[in-house]
Simulated assay, not measured.
Amino acid sequence: MTGNAITRPLSEPNLANLLGAGNVLQAPGIYDGLSARLVEQAGFEAAFISGACISFSRFGRPDMGLVSASEVAETVAVIRERTALPLIVDMDTGFGNALNVQRTVRTFERAGASALQMEDQLMPKRCGHMSGKQVISTREMEGKIRAALDARKSDQTLIIARTDALGVNGLEDAMERAERYLQAGADALFVEAPQTLAQMQEIGRRFGDRIPLVHNLVEGGNSPVESAGDLAPLKYRIALYPASLLHLFLPAAQRLLRDLKAHGHVGEHRQRMVDLSAINDLLGAEELLNAGKIYQYE
């Protein structure tokens, strides 16, 4: 390591070690300090900062490449301040060419990313489960992977190479791209949106013993499998749940607001709600108050 290498906090588990433990690593999607706190409290060992969820929650927009690199970096920094969980960060296409990728890697790594997921879509990108995607050339993506590897300050920062070619050019092209991305030095592979169990089995057979494989368990994304338990026999190692929290929050919020508008009070929803003191307990109000006492003058 060089003198300016990034040193991980002692409390942050090593993501590579977690991937070597033999179990499928479950990473729920998060998008702010509260969601990070909930995931950590639930006992998960890693979290996924989803670009889609940043777009959904912060800007009220679909996942169509509208979020900037600086906005993602700011979100990563806010979340890193709140949790020591390993953070797998969605960096979309790297926000430009190979030089842009290098700047993005440096910026996200400084903000606290533990792994960076980069895809081979053409900008402006869109959700991997939407139609109309386009992909860049394999050679260009190989260069971007090498650029990302050269830019990272710590070899503990993993580079995940994602290909969206399956839905554009078919399985054969996606498999060829994944092979070349592995050879370019990627630390993990993500073949997005397989359409059948047979395709997932083929991906697992070819790559599962050679490199960690990632799969998206996104509600409504037509995944051939439904759980982390289904992934282990297929030789996948990382299960992402990019928008599960928001997918549950949205209908619950709509029901509450509909009834509040109609009746002027929360009614039966109150039984399922927490109160202000519970939120303060969850977020560590007492801990902050005690920490502040150190600096009070008598």
Rank of each mutant, 00 (worst) to 15 (best):
K144G: 00
Q271D: 14
H215K: 04
I88S: 08
P62E: 08
I79K: 05
A52G: 15
L276H: 04
I160N: 06
S35V: 04
P251I: 00
T7G: 09
E140M: 12
I79F: 09
P224K: 03
K153S: 14
K144Y: 01
A147S: 14
P9D: 06
F249W: 11
M64F: 15
A113R: 03
L245V: 03
N4A: 13
S35G: 08
G112P: 13
G284F: 02
A253L: 15
A69Y: 01
L217I: 12
I279Y: 15
Q26H: 04
A5N: 08
E12Y: 01
G65V: 13
L25M: 08
E45V: 00
F48Q: 09
M273I: 04
N169W: 13
G221C: 04
A193N: 15
G229D: 15
L166P: 10
D32Q: 05
E45P: 00
S55W: 03
L85Y: 03
A178I: 12
I79Y: 05
I54Q: 05
S50Y: 06
N97M: 05
R152T: 05
E192C: 01
G20T: 04
E287F: 02
L289I: 14
S114F: 11
R139C: 06
A77E: 13
H129S: 03
E192T: 05
F190P: 14
A42Y: 00
G204C: 10
E286H: 06
G112V: 02
R272L: 04
S70Q: 11
V218Q: 09
G208H: 09
E71H: 07
K293M: 06
G132E: 02
L18H: 02
Y297F: 09
N222P: 00
V214M: 06
L276D: 08
P13S: 11
S11Y: 01
A184R: 03
G43I: 07
L171S: 13
K235R: 13
K125E: 12
A42E: 06
A262E: 14
L34S: 00
G220A: 14
A161Q: 06
G267M: 10
Q195R: 11
C127I: 12
K153T: 14
L234I: 01
P28V: 07
L217W: 05
G112Y: 00
Y297K: 10
V214Y: 10
A113Y: 04
E202G: 07
I160P: 01
Q117Y: 01
F249L: 13
L256F: 15
S154T: 08
D275C: 01
L87E: 13
T163D: 06
E71T: 07
D173Q: 13
L19R: 09
T75A: 15
V266M: 11
G132A: 08
A278G: 03
C127N: 06
L256T: 00
Q201K: 15
V135H: 01
D230S: 04
K235T: 02
A178L: 06
L25G: 09
L248Q: 09
G220C: 12
L289E: 14
E74T: 10
M175G: 12
G204H: 08
S35T: 15
I203W: 14
I30P: 11
A188L: 14
Q102Y: 01
E192G: 12
A98V: 06
A147R: 07
H269E: 15
